[in-house]
C-alpha cells in the first residue's frame, strides 16, 4: 500500500452528521467488481435530486471542490454497515483523508487498510474548519500525518489518530505480511489452545 505522508488539496466541506455507509454507497451498487472503479457511486443518492440530476447545492458537486482529496464531515462519519465499499468509493474518487469528530469503528479500521486517513478534530474545531474561508473557497489545505497537523489558511489544527494506525499509514504496511512474520507464535498458540479448549472445534453433524 502507498505510504501516506502529506496531502495538499482543496477540502470538500460536506458537513453532514451521521453519514452512514449506506449513504456512502447504496447497496444496489455493491455487486460491481472493484476493477470497474467505485468512484461514481460515492454518495450517489444524496448527490442527486428526485429526477436523478446532480444537485448544484451539494458540496461534492460544487466545482470549487472538484479536485479535493480531503473531505470534512460532522460526527459519526461512516457509521452502520461494515461494507468496505464505503471506503472504496472515497478512495476510487481520489479522496484519501476524511476529517470528522468521530468515525464508525469498522469504517475507520477499513480506511486504514486502504490508505485513507480518518483524522479526528473536536466538534468545535470542525465547525471552525468548515467556516474557514480557505476551505469554503476551495483553496488547498494541508494535512500532515507525521506531525498530525491540518493547516488551513493561517489556522493550524492538531488532529487525533490512533498511534498504530498512524504508523501503518505512514509505512504503508500490509497486515498479512506482518502477521506471517508471527507464524511461529500462531503455531504455538494453536498447539496450546487445542488442549485447553477442546470444545472450540465445531463438531461434524451427520
Amino acid at each position: 500500500m502507498k505510504p501516506f505522508t502529506v496531502l495538499e488539496t482543496p477540502a470538500c466541506p460536506l458537513g453532514l452528521v451521521n453519514v452512514d455507509t449506506d449513504q456512502l454507497i447504496p447497496a444496489r451498487f455493491m455487486q460491481t467488481p472493484r476493477s470497474q472503479g467505485y468512484g461514481p457511486f460515492l454518495l450517489h443518492d444524496l448527490r442527486r435530486d428526485a429526477n436523478g440530476e446532480l444537485r448544484s447545492d451539494f458540496p461534492l458537486n460544487d466545482p470549487r471542490y472538484r479536485d479535493c482529496a480531503i473531505m470534512i464531515a460532522r460526527k459519526n462519519f461512516g457509521c452502520g454497515s461494515s461494507r468496505e465499499a464505503g471506503v472504496y468509493v472515497l478512495v476510487d474518487q481520489g479522496i484519501t483523508c476524511v476529517i470528522a469528530p468521530s468515525f464508525g469503528d469498522i469504517f475507520a479500521s477499513n480506511s486504514i487498510k486502504n490508505g485513507l486517513l480518518p483524522a479526528r478534530l473536536s466538534e468545535s474545531e470542525i465547525e471552525e474548519l468548515l467556516a474557514e474561508p480557505t476551505v469554503v473557497d476551495g483553496r488547498p489545505i494541508r494535512v500532515d500525518l507525521a506531525n498530525q497537523k491540518i493547516i488551513a489558511g493561517n489556522r493550524s489544527f492538531d488532529f487525533d489518530i490512533r498511534a498504530d494506525w498512524k504508523k501503518q499509514l505512514i509505512n504503508g504496511w500490509d497486515d498479512v505480511d506482518m502477521t506471517r512474520s508471527y507464524a511461529k507464535d500462531i503455531e504455538a498458540f494453536v498447539a496450546a489452545d487445542g488442549g485447553s479448549r477442546p470444545w472450540a472445534i465445531p463438531r461434524s453433524p451427520r
Partner: peptide
C-alpha cells in the same frame, strides 16, 4: 464483531485478526 473486506481476506489467510 463485524469486519471489513480486507480483514475478511486476512482472516481467510491466517485465521487471526489484529
Amino acid at each position: 464483531f463485524g469486519i471489513g473486506a480486507s480483514e475478511v481476506a486476512h482472516v481467510l489467510m491466517t485465521q487471526t485478526i489484529w
